Simulated scan of single mutants.
Amino acid sequence: MLKIEHLNKSFGGVVATSDVSIHFKTESLSAVIGPNGAGKTTFFNLISGALRPDSGRILLDGEDIVGLPSSEIVHKGIGRAFQVAKLFKTLTVEESLRGALMSPLGKSSQMHGRFPLAQTRDRAYEVMEQLGLHTKADVISGNLSHGDQKLLDMALALVLKPKVLLLDEPVAGMGPEEREQMIQTVYALWKKGGLTVVLIEHDMEIVFRISQHIHVLSYGKVLAEGNAEQIRNNPAVIEAYLGKPAEVHA
Rank of each mutant, 00 (worst) to 15 (best):
T90C: 03
L165Y: 05
A85R: 07
V93E: 09
F88M: 12
S141I: 10
M102T: 05
S145G: 13
L166T: 02
E126I: 05
K89Q: 15
K107R: 15
E95G: 00
L87W: 12
V84P: 04
S141P: 05
H112N: 04
F88W: 06
Y125I: 01
P116D: 05
M154Q: 03
L101F: 06
A118P: 00
E180H: 12
R80N: 09
L105Q: 10
F88K: 08
S103G: 01
M102R: 09
E169T: 04
R179E: 14
F82H: 08
S109T: 04
L167G: 11
E177I: 13
Y125T: 00
S103A: 15
M154V: 15
E177L: 09
H146Q: 14
L151Y: 06
K150T: 08
I78C: 02
L167T: 06
A124Y: 07
M154F: 08
G106Q: 10
A81G: 09
I140A: 13
M154D: 03
S141E: 04
S103P: 00
S145V: 08
E129C: 01
L165G: 03
L160M: 00
G79C: 09
R80S: 06
D168Y: 04
P104L: 04
A137M: 03
K163Q: 11
M111N: 01
N143L: 12
L152G: 14
L156A: 01
A137P: 07
T90S: 10
M182I: 13
P116G: 08
L117E: 07
E180P: 08
E95K: 05
L133G: 00
L91F: 15
L165R: 04
T120D: 08
V171F: 09
L152N: 13
I78S: 00
A137I: 08
M102Q: 13
G132S: 02
T90L: 05
P162H: 03
M154Y: 07
K136W: 05
H134A: 13
I78A: 05
D148K: 07
D153Y: 02
L97N: 10
M154L: 15
K161E: 15
V93P: 07
G142H: 15
E177T: 10
L152H: 02
L97T: 00
Q119K: 09
P104Q: 07
T120K: 02
D168K: 03
S141A: 15
K161I: 04
T120M: 06
M154C: 14
P116H: 13
F115E: 10
D153L: 11
L105W: 14
L131I: 07
G106P: 09
E169N: 04
N143P: 01
G79H: 05
Q119M: 00
L158K: 04
L97E: 00
D148G: 10
K107T: 05
L165I: 14
D148H: 12
L152T: 12
V171M: 14
T92Y: 08
G147S: 01
P162S: 11
M111S: 02
L158Y: 05
L152I: 10
L133N: 00
M182N: 01
A155T: 02
L101W: 00
A155W: 02
S108G: 02
L166I: 12
D122Y: 12
A100M: 06
G175L: 04
A157H: 06
V159T: 13
L158C: 11
H112I: 00
D168N: 12
Q110R: 11
